[in-house]
Write a protein that binds this DNA or RNA. Structure first.
Lengths: 244, 244
DNA sequence: CGATATCTTGAGGAATCTCAATACTAGTGG
DNA sequence: CCACTAGTATTGAGATTCCTCAAGATATCG
């Protein structure tokens, strides 16, 4: 398999649709903007889909005909340089939203890290709903603002942090996001490969691996099986992340 | 004379000279969302201000009580690590908008690179106007989406590009943004210091300087006085920027 | 026209990358 | 159930880019 497998096209299935009103991640996402009765309007246009691990959900420069909401699993977003160098711009977990587009095109590729489920909202209909429910628009704006703040944190990380600081920041960020989703934050689940982590942090897989080993040796973390990482010293890890 | 001084006396405010309806950067910014008659509502709440070079407009973690629009000059946004390492997350020129906040706090510091003019919109009143004019909200959302796309490009640059590619990308981006503002794109004006460029690209001033020299020696650019850079070979520079 | 900041250039060093070998892990078929 | 395979992770050694420290050149400003 080539180094950067672009993945295969996701096959969409109209799978088991739990009604939006009973959606377990509703409070985390766009849908939280609407009341029970309005929610049915969203439910009318939503399609649920399941993507297998390593399958592409959509590709960079493709017409952005839909927005998505991750309901289970993990998704990565990335951009490529012509020679294949890759930058992962974000990892998405249940409750996270994908699909902000510029010029009606996606600015990145979205690919499942593990088998995942998503809600798919056709853009045209979503636009109409936003027209009808300004609070939906507000919600999206507020989510975009949060994403922007996260992007700026990531720029600080990429531009100015050392490998050790990057890994520490990454683990803490995963842990904090798990809390927000109401999942276990320690040990924290790290479902992505070393290569993905490297492409997210601007490192190589070897450096990621070495840095994990280093943090393990110094006792702040413990590498567990199943891609879990135990944080032994949260404050210590935080100090490392901030370079203090 | 500062690069962007349009020849007015410093004490005069922009609004005195041209009401919003005659604002030269209106089409570029939030204000483009509103019609002539609605614009007066914006004009009612706007304050114009002038900041001298190196002066801070607002600081990270400060309550975000206002949004701003740059009408002249250059502004930089940055974040700091505890030990003083700095990441500039963006440079703003006339027409650019500042002020997306998270948790009602600014996520970064804004500082004038050269003497600059801004329109200041109190957030509370702006929120009310957004309520009243959904198209204002839409406009802000679309601007946030564009910023997000730019942020992702910057992540690719920071995480995966070499120094040479970073400088080439930076020059091209400045040039393209000048076009959008209707200004001369070649030679392109580079009003910020080497240190600022370094903190924007995740490099040191020395590396920035050396890389400029290198690009100059290879003939793709020419360093001119007044902080201007002539792009001799746009295609060549583009190829360098993309690593091809 | 000097003072001060900024920019450029040089030499050496350090963090990270590249290339390469080995160890581990998970899934597959016998 | 176990050996086999292919992918993934770890570790090592050397190369390279970029950084650090230092000096000199240039620009800017009062």
């Amino acid at each position: 398999m080539p180094p950067f497998d672009m993945g295969r096209t996701a096959k969409q299935s109209v799978a088991d649709i739990h009604p939006c009103g009973a959606c377990p991640v509703r409070s985390l996402t766009v849908c939280a903007a609407l009341e029970e009765d309005e929610l049915s309007r969203l439910a009318d246009i939503v399609q649920t889909m399941r993507v297998e691990s390593h399958h592409t959900i959509f590709s960079e420069a493709e017409p952005a005909t839909a927005m998505f909401n991750v309901t289970a699993g993990t998704v990565k977003l990335y951009k490529l340089l012509p020679d294949g160098r890759r930058q992962i711009t974000g990892f998405l977990f249940s409750g996270d939203f994908i699909g902000l587009a510029v010029n009606d095109k996606f600015a990145y590729t979205a690919e499942a890290v593990v088998a995942s489920s998503l809600c798919r909202f056709p853009r045209r209909q979503m636009d109409a709903l936003m027209e009808e429910f300004p609070k939906l628009q507000r919600r999206l704006f507020s989510m975009a603002s949060n994403e922007l703040a996260a992007a700026q944190d990531q720029m600080l990380l990429l531009g100015r942090k050392t490998a050790k600081e990057k890994i520490a920041s990454f683990l803490l960020s995963l842990s904090q996001r798990a809390v927000r989703r109401g999942q276990k934050d320690n040990p924290v689940l790290v479902p992505m490969s070393r290569a993905d982590i490297a492409d997210y942090l601007g490192l190589t897989t070897e450096t990621v691996s070495r840095t994990f080993t280093q943090l393990k040796s110094s006792g702040v973390i413990r590498l567990m099986e199943g891609g879990k990482v135990q944080i032994n010293d949260k404050d210590g890890l935080y100090d490392i992340a901030e370079g203090t």
